[in-house]
Computed example of a mutant assay.
Amino acid sequence: GFARRALGPWGGFLTGTAILIEYVLAPAAIVIFIGDYVESLGLFGLESGWPVYLACFAIFLGIHLWGVGEALRFSFVVTGIAVVALIVFALAALPDFSFGSLDDIPVDTSASGSNSWLPFGLLGIWAAFPFGMWFFLGVEGVPLAAEETREPARTLPKAIRWSMAILVVLAVVTFFAAAGARGSNAIQEAGNPLVEALQPDGEATTLSRIVNYAGLAGLVASFFSLIYAGSRQLFALSRAGYLPRFLSLTSRRKAPYLGLLVPGTVGFLLAAVSGDGARMLNIAVFGATISYALMSLSHIVLRRREPELPRPYRTPGGVLTSSVALVLACAALVATFLVDVTAAFIALVVYAVAVAYFGLYSRKRLVAKAPEEEFAALAAAEAELARD
């Protein structure tokens, strides 16, 4: 709706679809990582694979279908467990922390500007963007709860500020604790890096098992919240006519059941067929970076075009902040091609198909009563009155 106001129907569709790609692919990546943790714990004798993925999607989609209140309460509890786990992990890793372990990756001497702190040179910083973003991917999903929130203009800005602050602190602590305890080189390929950081000899300890279970809770929390956000994004796009209308149907418990089941099925199939969490991650980041760029651009356009528009929440730093975000988002988008060309082109093809669908079909079938279109109609009427 925000991008629709600033950039028109095309801007709304391009932004919404980019976010949808992120929220369909991110759960597929996370469920693969959940499988790695389940396998390392030896739970039920399962190995990472499609039975684990199917169980995760079936159980957690079922909770979402039960109702939004139950789903968000569950998410809050699991997230609390995950935060406690990260604090316990950081305290446990502290005795083994060494600054020398942070830069123990072998240096690629052929890379420009390479040294022990930049083993892959200056280009390595750029290529690391998608992985650094993974710490924060999905935090923009907070506003997708707007229609199910009391006083969203007051509560959502507060929620996203707290979310960002907590994420920054936990990301820095987790990153340095894991790399400093075991060594960057040792954990760079690990599917469960927190556990690996606490098992220098490869033998499981009571503490590493506790962190493993709690780390699993953290992945479940991310998985669960991304499913919620993706279903609401699909619901909004469908309700406005950007995607087929039937996808916005809701159950008696007001859950968008097709908005949950369709992306859930796609996510499960992608995870089961590929089993490549890193690739899914990169495709999700591709969608995220496009949406970040378009949202930043929308902010700049609205500040310039409609300076008097009522704004319950104002971005700290204003246009300067969103301009920096726009540049960084574009740089991160290019970085996805540096890291995994195949993943970037897969995302690009999916995006192109969606654009073709909108241009040739749904663009002419937008729903006039959808909130996004009503806001646009009001804006056009106000502009007409101003001219008169």
Rank of each mutant, 00 (worst) to 15 (best):
A3F: 01
R4A: 10
R5F: 00
G8E: 09
P9K: 04
W10V: 09
W10Q: 10
T15N: 11
T17H: 06
A18I: 06
L20A: 08
I21E: 00
Y23W: 05
Y23K: 00
V24F: 08
A28W: 01
A28M: 11
A28V: 13
A29V: 07
V31C: 07
I34N: 01
E39C: 10
S40P: 03
L41Y: 13
F44N: 10
F44H: 07
L46S: 09
E47D: 15
G49M: 06
W50P: 11
W50Q: 09
L54K: 09
C56L: 14
F57S: 05
L61C: 04
G69M: 08
G69L: 01
L72G: 11
R73V: 12
V77A: 13
V78G: 08
T79Y: 04
G80T: 14
G80I: 10
A82D: 05
V84G: 06
V88L: 15
A90M: 10
A92I: 09
L94G: 11
L94F: 13
P95N: 05
D96P: 07
S98V: 11
S98F: 02
G100M: 09
S101E: 04
D103I: 08
N115C: 08
L122S: 02
G124S: 12
W126D: 02
F129H: 00
F131I: 07
V139Y: 01
V142M: 06
P143Y: 11
E147V: 04
T149Q: 06
E151K: 10
E151F: 14
A153N: 15
R154Q: 14
S163P: 13
A165G: 14
L167D: 08
S184F: 00
N185Q: 15
I187S: 07
Q188M: 15
G191F: 02
P193C: 03
L198Y: 02
P200K: 06
A204T: 13
A204H: 12
T206I: 15
Y213E: 00
L216D: 05
G218A: 07
S222Q: 01
S225Q: 02
L226G: 01
A229P: 02
S231Q: 09
R232T: 01
L234I: 11
G241C: 00
T250P: 05
L260G: 03
V262K: 03
A271D: 06
V273N: 00
V273K: 08
V273M: 14
S274K: 06
G277N: 04
R279H: 07
M280C: 13
I283T: 01
A293I: 02
A293S: 13
M295P: 02
S298Y: 04
H299V: 12
I300E: 01
P307Y: 05
E308H: 14
L320Y: 13
S322P: 11
S323N: 11
L328N: 00
C330Y: 02
V334R: 09
V339E: 08
T342S: 15
T342K: 08
F345W: 15
V350F: 09
V353P: 02
V353D: 10
V355R: 05
V355Y: 04
V355K: 03
Y357P: 00
F358G: 04
F358Q: 06
L360A: 14
S362P: 07
R363T: 01
R365T: 03
L366G: 05
V367A: 13
A368W: 04
K369I: 00
P371Q: 00
A376R: 11
A376H: 07
A379R: 15
D388C: 04
